[in-house]
Design a protein around this nucleic acid. Sequence first.
DNA 1: GAGTGGTCTAGACCACCTC
DNA 2: AGGTGGTCTAGACCACTCG
Lengths: 254, 254
Amino acid sequence: MGTTQLETVPEPKYWHLKTVLADALDSEFAVGEILPNERELAARFGVARATLRQALEQLELEGRLQRRRGVGTTVAPPRMGVSVGPSQGEWPGAGGDAWRTIGCVEAAAPAAVAAALGTDPERPVHTIRRQRTMRGQSVATELLYVPSDSVPALPGNLSPAAHAPAVLRELHTLPLAGEDRAVELGSARAEDAKQLDRLPGAPVLVVTTRYVSDGRVVAVAVATYRADTCRLTFGDSGVEITHHDEDERGLAAS
Amino acid sequence: MGTTQLETVPEPKYWHLKTVLADALDSEFAVGEILPNERELAARFGVARATLRQALEQLELEGRLQRRRGVGTTVAPPRMGVSVGPSQGEWPGAGGDAWRTIGCVEAAAPAAVAAALGTDPERPVHTIRRQRTMRGQSVATELLYVPSDSVPALPGNLSPAAHAPAVLRELHTLPLAGEDRAVELGSARAEDAKQLDRLPGAPVLVVTTRYVSDGRVVAVAVATYRADTCRLTFGDSGVEITHHDEDERGLAAS
DNA sequence: GAGTGGTCTAGACCACCTC
DNA sequence: AGGTGGTCTAGACCACTCG
């Protein structure tokens, strides 16, 4: 007999480090403040840089830190509440939604999108890229897929500038029966990452919306939100509460 | 003159590795199949194990792989579509929702929850832990917070077994005016991780629901879903589409 | 050019599961 | 006992930003 340690639960170093840093963030640092660099922090805590980085990665995932290559690590502001749900019964691109159109091409849809649309993978679709900014920050990028036969009245040859508005205009003439959404975790593809000002592989929340008209899926939107800075809100209720939660810290932090 | 390489875009090794593995997963492996172990894979691709692991981590994040210590790495099935939204106008715990009650205590609410409830941080709240399983897998764990003054008619001394049902029964007597939700990325705390059969720090989707009755927030639920295995669905529309998307691969993979 | 975070290596040991 | 993934180390070099 004899081991003095009873029920040791050997908490990983990086995990303990994370909680220590999180506490320090709450008590000793202000939003936007720059932390000491990684080599210095690692030395200060007596761990290898890789271990320190493991802790920082988690804190960044939880939206508490922001790291930029060549610049440094800063304390992130609380996540922004980004409204996703409440514009129920509205087509994308309808008056005054938060999106800005970037471009539009007509091409074959990716397999997964074709499945969601219920069309042939070969069938061409109008693909509109849009971007959503909030408080001067790019928070989401979206690809909106509209099968050509959803908007049959569309004229054939369109200038690039006129293409997206024309597709949206045709779309708006249809009766919108409903929409359903799904949210899942993903990692930013190279193209999306650039739009979001992040590195490829950054964690994102992918919101897939299917727009239904007359019993058919007439459009699918795949929106990619920065997971580190965004909290997606679904205002299902018709009620409004006097309590503005705009600047609250979310509940996800561990 | 000089450097022969023009516009080199030095794609990181782990990134390239990830795409190679993803393709192999699609073409050469079946769901549930066990991959070669990490040391072998690293050797086969001529990289260090840490680099190989970086690629596997991303694939696990995207729900394409499942890794279990002491066992191995297996090909994950497509993410489950988990319904979160459509039970609009229903109290939690009402007949036949997918949750199972684990326990209930009365204690002070965490600061973040108190803020969402709009109550004093010191005010005691009933805290009900529930768990949601799907296809034999634990997919979510939830803490439902009900301030004591939301259910004033509740008798004082309750047996642990009778506690949660009594709170829910009282809650159901209130008129439900509406609810709103938020989704954000988090990492599993130790306690949640155990419920979800994951390691602490595993990526989770945190769904915060506020239940409103008579202009006040009378309950708050913080549900923690496994981000690797779940795709959260919000059936906002009243329409049903003939196309069952139960077993589709999601759109988040890069 | 100096300093930052991002990538990569080649090892070691540990916790866990299965046989 | 043997094999798996999880943690950790001590270095190196690279890509990027900024003064």
